[in-house]
């Protein structure tokens, strides 16, 4: 549950830069880059290779031939099942996220194509309450898995999340069981499931659908873990080593299949899919 630790000043990677907003500063190496050049380079820093955060539409465009061809369940909205009493009301945080992001939840699901092959696609939105998983996120992902099972289309999920949504209490925890059960059924079928982990993927999302891919691919430098770094530091009372819980660390420890830079993401997914899907060897 690290999602609201320092909200880092976002260096956005929007395609339509506002007038005057033509330069971006890399939060890793400090290089000032021309936004247009950055966009041409998949929002990867030209100097150091740092992956700027991109939004769900960015991933849909990156991975799918014609972005999302049909969106599902876009009307599902969160309610406040616990009538959560916190410093800020859940409804208020939700409204704020809604206005900021222009979508109703922290995951976007739908159907598209990867080099012509039809897939079920889901992508999380870290801007929406830290990409946290509440009932709606869990439900949309479970439905995506069920659609993949029924349609026999491979499922691709792109994750970015701080974990479970505290304000839905134990109901958000149960979404881990719900999504994993739905993937269990898919697992028993011969429909591939690809999980793509982006910065950051932690908590209940990592401990459920994100780590259950037939193939798990991480973006370079992405923070991926169960517990947040701050919680671990507090628990063990020492500083964490450099690179701990980064994508490359997980690769080294055998937890992900590959670390793939953004420009190679689609070709890699496409190649892998064709090894795993019947009648697509051409």
């Amino acid at each position: 549950m690290t999602w609201f630790k320092k909200e880092k000043k976002k260096i956005t990677a929007q395609k339509r830069a506002l007038p005057g907003d033509v330069w971006a500063k890399c939060e890793d190496c400090g290089e000032i880059v021309y936004r247009e050049k950055l966009a041409e380079n998949f929002n990867v820093c030209l100097k150091c290779g740092h992956h700027f955060r991109i939004d769900p539409d960015g991933y849909a465009e990156l991975l799918l031939d014609r972005s999302l061809e049909e969106e599902y369940d876009s009307d599902l909205m969160s309610v406040d099942p616990l009538r959560f009493v916190g410093p800020t009301a859940y409804a208020e945080r939700y409204e704020r996220a809604l206005r900021k992001v222009g979508r109703k939840e922290a995951v976007l699901t739908g159907r598209g194509r990867v080099d012509g092959l039809e897939v079920e696609f889901g992508v999380m939105d870290f801007r929406f309450i830290g990409g946290s998983m509440g009932s709606v996120v869990g439900e949309k992902i479970a439905r995506a898995a069920e659609r993949a099972l029924k349609s026999e289309r491979p499922l691709i999920m792109v994750s970015a999340s701080g974990g479970a949504r505290m304000m839905e209490g134990v109901l958000s925890l149960m979404q881990m069981a719900k999504t994993s059960s739905a993937l269990g059924r898919l697992h028993r079928s011969r429909v591939p499931y690809f999980s793509i982990l982006t910065n950051p993927t932690t908590g209940g999302v990592t401990a459920s659908f994100a780590m259950l891919g037939d193939v798990i691919i991480a973006e370079p430098g992405a923070l991926i873990g169960f517990a947040g770094p701050r919680v671990i530091e507090q628990t063990i009372g020492q500083e964490l080593p450099d690179g701990f819980q980064r994508a490359e660390f997980l690769l080294e420890h055998g937890m992900v299949d590959m670390v793939v830079p953004r420009p190679e993401l689609k070709p890699t997914v496409s190649k892998l899919l064709r090894h795993m899907v019947d009648g697509q060897s051409g």
Partner: peptide, 26 residues
Amino acid sequence: AAYPGLGAEERGQAEAIARNLLEMSL
């Protein structure tokens, strides 16, 4: 809680829990 420590992360705490959720459902 599940232990939040260095070794636990290195050995895949998240994967271990996720795997149990999936397998227990089956």
